[in-house]
Design a protein around this nucleic acid. Sequence first.
DNA 1: AGTCTACATTCCACTCTTGACATGTCATTA
DNA 2: TAATGACATGTCAAGAGTGGAATGTAGACT
Lengths: 180, 180
Amino acid sequence: MSRVECRLDGMSLRHALLGLLSERPASGYDLLKLFETSLATAWPATQSQIYTELTKLAGTGLITVAAEGPRGRKEYALTDEGLAELRHWLIETKPQRNTRSDILLRVFFLGVLTPEQAHGYLAELIELSDQGYQSLRRLEESVDWDDGGLSVYGRIALEYGLRFNAMRREWAEWAAGQIT
Amino acid sequence: MSRVECRLDGMSLRHALLGLLSERPASGYDLLKLFETSLATAWPATQSQIYTELTKLAGTGLITVAAEGPRGRKEYALTDEGLAELRHWLIETKPQRNTRSDILLRVFFLGVLTPEQAHGYLAELIELSDQGYQSLRRLEESVDWDDGGLSVYGRIALEYGLRFNAMRREWAEWAAGQIT
DNA sequence: AGTCTACATTCCACTCTTGACATGTCATTA
DNA sequence: TAATGACATGTCAAGAGTGGAATGTAGACT
C-alpha cells in the first residue's frame, strides 16, 4: 500500500511486458514471439531478458501465473496492480530518454575515410532503409488488422516505421550529394 | 601484432571517443563537452563513462596521454593503432544494432488509456519534436561551420536530426487524427 | 519406434550505462 | 581576501542488456 517505490526512469522492458499482457495472458515463449514480431522495431529483447523480468514481475505481484500448461508452460496474466503500473508509466510524463544510434554516430566520423568510402557507407544506409521499409510493408500485409486493441496502435507504430525509413533514405541520398 | 582481438559488436562509446580524438587531442573534460553538444543526439554519454573508457583506451594503446595541463588535465591523443581501429569500425560493415525507443513503445499500449489521454500523449510528442527541431536550429546558427573535418559531416548529422523531428511531428499529427 | 521440430524454461558470465558520490584546482570578481 | 563558478578527474553500486549453454517435453510425421 504505502510502499515507497523509488521508480527509476528506465525499465521499459518491464512495461513492454505489462503492455503485452494487458491484451491477453501469455507465456514467456508467447511473449518472446510477440517481441520478435510486433515490438522488434521499438524495443528488441532477448529470451533471457524476458524470462528474468517475468520472474521479477511475478515476485512483485504485478503479474501472476494464471494457468500452467503442457510443457511446464506458465501463462502469466496482468494483475490490477500491474495495470495500474502500466497506466502510470503511460501517463506520468516521464521525459523520454535519448535514443542511441550507432548509424548516426558513424556519420560524424566519415571524414577519416575517403569520399568513396563515405559514399559506400551512405549507400549501405540507403539499402538498409529500403529493406526496413519493405519488411514493414510485408508485415503490414500479413497482419490481421481487425485483431485486438494492439491493432489500432500497432498500425500507428508501423506507420512510424515506414515514415522513418523513408525519411532516412531521402536523407542519405541528400547526404551523398553533399560529399564532393 | 597478431593479437587475437575478439571484437564485440557494441562499444560505440569507445569509437565515439576515438572519432572525436581523430580531429584533435582533448581531455576528458573537453570530450564531455563535445558529447553534450555535437554527439548528444546520436550517442549521449555521461562523465563517468567517458573517464572510465579513456583509461581503458589508454591501457590498450589506442590513445595516449600526449600532454598534461594545469589542473591535472590529461590531454589524450589518438595513436596509429587507434586510427586503424576507428577506420575498421567505420568500414567493416557491422550490422547496426536496432535502436530502442520508449517513445514508440508507449504507442503500442495507448489502447489501455482513454482516447483523451492518448491524444494527450501524442500532443506531448508533437511538442517534444518541435523543441528538438528548434534546439537543432539554434545549434545550427551557433556553430562555426568552417571549422574542422567534423563540420561537413556534423552538418549532415544535424540535418538528420532536423528531418527526424519534422517527420515525427507530422506522424504524431497524423496519428492523432487516427484516434476517434 | 525413431526422429525432428516447435514449445518451454533456467542459469551464467560478461559488458554497458546510469547516477551519485568524492575530491581538488585555477581564475575571476566582488 | 573570500567566494564563486568553471575546470578537471576518479570511483562505486546497481540496473539494463547480450549471448550462449544446458535441459527437457509434446506432437507430428515417417
